[in-house]
Write a protein that binds this DNA or RNA. Structure first.
Lengths: 326, 326
DNA sequence: ATGAAAGCGCTAACAT
DNA sequence: ATGTTAGCGCTTTCAT
C-alpha cells in the first residue's frame, strides 16, 4: 500500500507556522528567524517531508531536471557511460536530476521535453558540425550546453577536449621518440566532417608541417590496423600509431599480434584507464587522458551558471588533454 | 527569449470547446464525438500543444517518468550503456521518460524520488543478494522491477539472464569439445555472494557432476588469466576458459599472448558483439549472447504491466542465454 | 456528448 | 518576521 507523502501543510501544522513559512524556509527567498527555522526544519525531518515536484514545477516553472540527449550506444561504448555517470553525479550536487532523451527522438524529442516542461535545460552529446537539434534547442529558448563543439552555436555553451592540442601532442611525441611516420587509424580522413576529427587533424598537420614526419591517414577497419602497421614500416624505421576513435580496440588487436613489443612500433592510446589491468603487455603504452569526467563536470557547472547567473552569456570551454606517463 | 508554451485553455479557445473537453480528448477517459475530436486535434497540431508535465503530475499523481538506478560505471563498462539505451527506447514507446538515479545516492536517493513524486516507478540494476535499496522501494510502495534477481523480493518483479542455464551451457560445450578442465575466471569463487554468480556456479556444478570435467575457480586478476591457463594445462590436454565478468578483457589478454590459436585452449565468450571487428583472431571464438537488449525491454514492459494492469502481481522472468555460433 | 468548477501542493506577491 | 491568498495547468467529479 502506498501511503500519501506529507505536504508542506502537514509540516506547517506540526511546526505551528503558516504553510508559506515552510516554503520560505525551503527556498530561502525570505529571511526567517532562527527559532522558526529550527522548528520547521525539525518538523520536516520528523515527517520526512520532500516538496512535491509536480507542484513546485507547475508553480515555479523550474523542474530541477536537466535533459541529457545521449547518442545511440554502438555496443562497445563504455566511454559514454563515464560521461553519463559523471554528469548525473555532478548534477546531483547542484540539486538537479538527469532525464534521458534518446538521440533517436531527434529534434522532435527536444520539442517534446521543452513543451511539456519536464526539463529546464539541456545537455547535448555527439553533435554533427551542423546539427538540426541545435537549431531546435535555440528556437525553444532553453539554456543548453553541448559536449563537443559544433561549428556554430551563438546561443549555447560548449565544453570539449582541445582536439587541436591533442593532435599537436601526438605529433610531438612521435617526433620525440624518433618515429619516421605516424599512422592515424579509425578512418580520420573519412571523418573530417566531424568537428572533433577535423580539429584534431588541423593540430596534427600544423605540428607536422616542416618536419620529416610522414602522415598516414588509414582508411580501413580498425581490426586490420596491425597488418597495415607492418606493411608501412620499412626496415630500420619506426611508426607511431594513434586512433582518435576505436583506440582501445586497436590496441588489443595490436597486442594480439605482438606488435606492441616490437621496437619499430610506438602505440599511443587515448584513454584514462589503467591498461595494465587488462594485460601486462599494455602497461608500457603511453596514454593521453581524454578527461571525460572533467568535461562532464564542466558541462554541468556551465549549465548551472547559465541557469542561475542573471544574463550569463554562452561560452566555449576547451579542456587540455594530459599525458599520463610523463 | 523563451515564449510561453500554449495551454489546454488556448487549444479550447481555438477549437471552440471547453477546456475540459480538450483534456478528455487527450486522456480518452470519456467518449467524444468525431467532429469535436477532430477540431480539438487540429487545434493541438496547429499550436504545437503538449500538456504541461508539472500540472499533469500534480493533478494525476502520475509523472510518466520511470526512475532508473544505475550502478557506478566501472571504467570501461560499455555493457551498462546497452541496457540504458534499450531501456530508454522501450520506455519511450510506452510514453515514459527515464530519470537517472545514481547508485551513489543509495536508499536515500530512492526516498527522495518517491517523496518528491518525480518517478512513478523504478528499475533497479545490479543489486546485491540482500540490498537495502529493495527494502526502501518496497516500503515506498512504488511499483518496481529489478534487473538481476536479488534473493528475496516479494513485492517487485525481476528480469534476469538464466544464469543456471548459462552454467550448464558452458559445461556442455566444454565436454562436447573434449576439454579436460574448465577454468572459470573473474574470481567467481570469491563472488558467490553475488546472486548471479552463485546461480551460475550452481548450474556449472550440477552439470559437471558425474563427469570427468575438472573445475577450476580462478581467484586472480583477469590480466593474469593467460599465464594461468598455460600453467594448468598438462601436455596433450585441453582447457576451456570462461569468465562471467571481465570476459572480453581476458579475451583480449588471451589473444595478446597467442593463447587463442593454441588448440589446447577453448575460449568461450559472454558477449553479443561481433568480435571479429576487433581482431580477426577473435572471429572463431564461440559466443554466448547475454541478451541485454531483450532483458532491458522485458524489464520496461513488466513495469508497464505493473503500472497499468489492475492488481497485477510481481513475477520473475528469466531469459535464456543463446549460442551465437551454432 | 459536453461544460463548469473544484482542487492537486506549491511559490510569491501582497498584506500586516 | 510572519500570515493570507491567488493562481500555475491540468484531471475529474458533478452537472446538464
Amino acid at each position: 500500500m502506498r501511503k500519501k507523502p506529507p505536504t508542506s501543510q502537514d509540516v506547517a501544522r506540526l511546526a505551528g507556522v503558516s504553510q508559506s513559512t515552510v516554503s520560505y524556509v525551503l527556498t530561502g527567498s525570505r529571511p526567517i528567524s532562527g527559532a522558526t527555522r529550527k522548528r520547521v526544519e525539525e518538523a520536516i525531518d520528523k515527517l520526512g517531508y520532500h516538496p512535491n515536484s509536480g507542484a513546485r514545477t507547475l508553480r515555479s516553472q523550474r523542474s530541477n531536471v536537466i535533459g541529457l540527449m545521449v547518442p545511440e550506444a554502438d555496443s562497445d561504448d563504455g566511454v559514454l557511460m563515464v560521461f553519463i555517470g559523471a554528469i548525473a553525479r555532478e548534477a546531483q550536487r547542484f540539486g538537479y536530476d538527469i532525464l534521458l532523451v534518446t538521440a533517436q527522438e531527434g529534434a522532435q524529442g527536444i520539442r517534446r521535453v521543452v513543451r511539456t516542461g519536464v526539463c529546464e535545460a539541456l545537455i547535448l552529446m555527439e553533435l554533427g558540425r551542423h546539427d538540426e537539434r541545435v537549431a531546435t534547442v535555440i528556437e525553444s529558448g532553453l539554456p543548453f550546453v553541448t559536449i563537443g563543439k559544433p561549428d556554430e552555436l551563438p546561443q549555447g555553451s560548449a565544453v570539449d577536449l582541445d582536439f587541436e592540442m591533442l593532435g599537436r601532442m601526438v605529433v610531438q611525441r612521435a617526433l620525440r621518440q624518433d618515429c619516421d611516420r605516424l599512422l592515424l587509424f579509425g578512418a580520420p580522413g573519412q571523418k573530417r566532417h566531424r568537428n572533433d576529427v577535423s580539429r584534431f587533424l588541423n593540430g596534427v598537420e600544423s605540428q607536422a608541417d616542416g618536419t620529416d614526419l610522414q602522415l598516414l591517414l588509414d582508411a580501413g577497419a580498425v581490426a586490420d590496423v596491425p597488418e597495415r602497421a607492418v606493411q608501412v614500416t620499412a626496415a630500420g624505421e619506426r611508426t607511431a600509431l594513434f586512433g582518435i576513435t576505436g583506440a582501445t580496440q586497436a590496441l588489443f588487436a595490436l597486442a594480439a599480434t605482438g606488435a606492441l613489443t616490437d621496437p619499430s612500433r610506438l602505440m599511443i592510446a587515448l584513454t584514462g584507464d589503467d591498461l595494465s589491468a587488462v594485460s601486462p603487455l599494455l602497461a608500457a603504452v603511453p596514454r593521453i587522458d581524454p578527461r571525460r569526467v572533467e568535461i562532464s563536470e564542466l558541462a554541468v557547472r556551465e549549465l548551472v551558471r547559465l541557469l542561475r547567473e542573471e544574463g550569463a552569456g554562452p561560452r566555449v570551454t576547451l579542456v587540455e588533454p594530459r599525458w599520463l606517463d610523463d
